[in-house]
Computed example of a mutant assay.
Amino acid sequence: MKKIIFIILLSYTILISCEIKTEKSAIALQTDFGRKDNAVSSMYGVALSVDPNLKIYDLTHEIPAYNIWEAALRLDQTARYWPKGTVFVNVVDPGVGTDRKSVVMKTTNDYYFVTPDNGSLTFVAESMGVEEVREIDEAVNRLKNSDESYTFHGRDVYIYTAAKLASQQINFKQVGKSLGTNITKINYEKARFENGKFFANIPILDIQYGNIWTLLPRKLMLDNGVQVGDTLNIEIYNDGNLVWNGDIKLVNTFGDVPEGENMGYFNSELNFSIAVNMGNFSDKYKVYSGPKWSIEATKK
């Protein structure tokens, strides 16, 4: 009797184990394609042809055309909120068809990123850590009969590989040869506190409202004597040239200052940001974002 019970329990354990191993991962897409044509829907079709039971979601398809920097930022802002094991596909690929590598990066916390290796992985590599990068072997991980297509790797290579990986038709090692932990990175001003002054990059705008988002962490500022209610002198530079200088008060939220007044606050990523309450700081002062935009802040 005990032997029979043991066999039943062992069989059940094996069955459960098999179910766990065959559980599919979600696919999340980011591109600069927009929705005006069939590009995104074609990628959906390829993925569902690999496995009709896959779950596919959109991060955004409104990355500005060719803007690798913004693609890198949006991936990092979004990926951490998805379940572990999610397979992200990023197709912002101005170098499509050239010798830039097509890769899958696995992070140390078990996320996968399928993308051209063109700098798009800069921020997720820093925030999540790189376990390993593999170059996609297009001899086996490419849509059938697409060899003569050179300009739509999003459809022919990336979503196809992602779908095979998410559905567990291939494992990570079967993506292609290992590249170790090496990826292409974009250089930018790293956040730091030095000689009484804070330095950081301005990576992106809160586009709808024109607020200026920086990579200056709340913790770094609080740890170095800044608190809500303080006044800060702000200098904003583009490629080393001063664009704007002024004093602002650090507050908790927009309603803490009168309408039309400049303000500093910590955004939803818990980084220092600048805004005009009920206005557009970017438009008003011609301040924008990217790897060459930076901020310096000093407590008064």
Rank of each mutant, 00 (worst) to 15 (best):
L220C: 08
T253D: 14
D256E: 14
Q169A: 09
Q208M: 13
V157S: 06
Y209T: 03
I236C: 05
T161C: 13
N145C: 02
R192Q: 12
H153K: 04
D156K: 08
L143Y: 07
L216N: 06
L250M: 08
L222H: 09
E194P: 00
I202T: 03
K144V: 06
G196P: 04
L232A: 01
I170E: 12
A162Q: 09
Q227K: 15
L250H: 03
G180V: 04
N233G: 00
L242P: 07
Y188L: 01
I202M: 06
K164I: 04
N245H: 13
R192L: 05
D147S: 11
T253G: 05
T161F: 10
V133R: 04
V140R: 15
T253H: 12
V243S: 03
N224S: 11
T181I: 07
P258H: 06
K197R: 14
I159K: 00
G180C: 06
K177V: 08
N141T: 08
E235L: 04
L205R: 09
G154D: 09
I212R: 05
N252V: 07
K177W: 00
L215W: 00
N233D: 12
I212D: 03
E138L: 14
F198M: 02
L250F: 02
L216I: 05
E138K: 15
I186P: 00
Q169V: 03
D230L: 03
G260Q: 11
D156F: 07
I234M: 05
T214H: 02
I186N: 01
V140Y: 11
N201L: 02
E269M: 14
Q227C: 08
K164C: 09
N201R: 04
G196Q: 11
N201P: 03
G154I: 04
R142Y: 02
D223N: 14
Q174S: 13
K249L: 06
Y158T: 07
L143H: 01
D156Q: 05
N187P: 00
F254H: 14
I204G: 00
L222R: 11
L179E: 11
I207L: 12
N182M: 06
W213C: 13
K164L: 12
D239F: 00
N233S: 10
S146Y: 07
V243C: 04
A200P: 01
V251I: 15
T161Q: 08
F193G: 08
K197C: 09
Y188E: 01
E189G: 01
G246W: 09
S167R: 08
V243R: 13
N238Y: 12
F193K: 01
F152C: 02
L143T: 01
D230H: 04
E194G: 00
E269V: 10
N262L: 15
N171E: 12
T161V: 10
L205C: 07
V226P: 11
